[in-house]
Amino acid sequence: MSTAELSTNVQATPVRYLTPRVEVGETETAVWLVADMPGVATDGATVELDETVLVIEGVVEPADVEKAESRPTRHYKRRFTLSDPALFDIANIKAKMANGVLEVEIPKASKPEPRQIKIATS
């Protein structure tokens, strides 16, 4: 599966790391990753693909979460592994953050045409 998961959940004092709950689904044309990250602003999320590892992150700055004193920064983070990046059109991955939900669309690559391989004659 493309989302073999290497989840990290580290507890540190000033930052609270949280693992967002996700939904992974597949349509004809794409694989979708939907993650709940309440409190993350529309510009507060990042999606990164490094080789086969897709990392989604979202940060809730304390300022967003009221003036309240002792609230730590909340940091959502989760990693997924794409089985084979060649199966996806990784240049066209799209992400949208709205109403505390991150949606990532990973389009499937169109199937490569069968190729004729010339047989060399000596």
Partner: peptide, 19 residues
């Protein structure tokens, strides 16, 4: 109205933690 509904109907939902 969400993307989720279309996953659910054709069995192509691979991971479902959201409620």
């Amino acid at each position: 109205f969400g993307r989720e509904a279309s996953f659910a109907n054709d069995g192509s939902r691979h991971r479902s933690e959201r409620r």
